[in-house]
Write a protein that binds this DNA or RNA. Sequence first.
DNA 1: TACTCAATTTCGCTC
DNA 2: GAGCGAAGTTGAGTA
Lengths: 284, 284
Amino acid sequence: MSPVSLHDPSHRETLWELEAAFDRGDMVTVFGACTVEYDGRAASSLGEGARLLVLKPDGSALVHTDEGRTPVNWQPPGSEHRAAVRDGRLRVRSSRTSPDETLDVRFTSVSHLASYPVTGGRGVDVVGSEADLKQRVVEEPSLVEDGFEPAATERETAAGPVDVFGTDADGNPLVVELKRRRVGPDAVGQLARYVGAVEREEPDGVAVRGVLVAPSITDRARDLLAEEGLGHVAVDPPDDAAGAADAPDAAESDGSGAAGASEGVGRGDGDAAATDGSGADERT
Amino acid sequence: MSPVSLHDPSHRETLWELEAAFDRGDMVTVFGACTVEYDGRAASSLGEGARLLVLKPDGSALVHTDEGRTPVNWQPPGSEHRAAVRDGRLRVRSSRTSPDETLDVRFTSVSHLASYPVTGGRGVDVVGSEADLKQRVVEEPSLVEDGFEPAATERETAAGPVDVFGTDADGNPLVVELKRRRVGPDAVGQLARYVGAVEREEPDGVAVRGVLVAPSITDRARDLLAEEGLGHVAVDPPDDAAGAADAPDAAESDGSGAAGASEGVGRGDGDAAATDGSGADERT
DNA sequence: TACTCAATTTCGCTC
DNA sequence: GAGCGAAGTTGAGTA
């Protein structure tokens, strides 16, 4: 009798059932009126109110109100759930170490509790991620610009890994930063950071160009890009992946495109351009 | 009879209760075996498995497996929930526009359904945020460095808003970026971006310094900081806010501290330094 | 509505 | 475990 549900249980009954569910490794939901206290990476407190508490066997705890996708309070996986009755209230405490943090949920009344064995079925397949965009660019480098030849993906620099690194039509280094959605100033900063790092790593005098590949870009980001001498190439998401076009910024391309003679000199450093397995494998 | 719970209901019963709950504005939890399809900003599909579905009256939908704090699939607030029986399965569809996206949850069997009126009690008070750190710095500018005089918070620049802007002991502009936790290269990029923007806005020739205020910093970030001629000041979180000290990087300070004569020249642009109300007010 | 950034971000990956 | 960046990020605040 694993799926269990209690109506208006006493705290004592709730306590029993919670501990039994923890032992079984069941997932538990509790509807009721409670207060919530959190202390750890920050600290928070939440006054009395009607809420949903979800307890997972992996140690996760979620406190949800009637609004928002994000829980109003929570505890990450790896925590340990305990329950007790104190001062006439049912206390559910979830805590973990490194970092040390504790979530306390105190119910004044429990309206409903349910427990259920939920196992497996976690492997979700997502299409339309940045990894997919990277694969597209590697397979079709002209999406970035004519003459672009990818040499490596995730190439390490002193400033972090570059999405796609290669050479332009003139054989000069080109840094490509990919974003699956509209970008702001932060993405420009990221690209500028990588370009600067590659510049310092190059034998001096070599100009390093940088291009931001994204569906669209904010005005401020565009100004910053120009300020830094960097470029932007608009790439629309494929129709089959994302149903809704984000912004019709179509086929624009202000990457300071070097005119194209001199077929790629092919400075063959870094590892070969290859898609680094973005195939999400089902793990049941 | 608002709190409702069904055991091993037929799809027909589930359908009825779901629609009633939507009408009442109740929050609903459903345990059962289902598949999940999402299409919108990206696309995803999830094979059959035991899961928890949470439906909120504000349009949020969450699909949870037994692991992880994050739902395996979801729909943001503002969506509309509908339910139907199709091909012998119970389908719960949640969709919204702008962006256009739809979540389809198809149950082959429902083990349990509960609905409950969850209203209000959403106002959580959080202590230890970046806003709190900002307040500390504004009230005690010497935390950044001796002679620092804040002139404005959230001062707008072409690169975005600067956390704290002011003048150093020499009266030269100082840009301060605050982080409540250990920082990496991205924070350095952010600070560099702001410093560059302020430099361009200053009458030429004026040196603009930048300091990253954070509990600690990674090696790579430190190198980048040095490369950019920027500084770091370690500030530990107050004991009462965060219980666990993140890293004992104590009282270090490699902000390229200018020696201190010349009491702050006070270039009085921007608005006055003032804490911008970080007091979270309860909204019930 | 769009922009900008924080978040108890979480999560996955690599070293 | 730390570091690094993506995310269907979400959410808050402001113009």
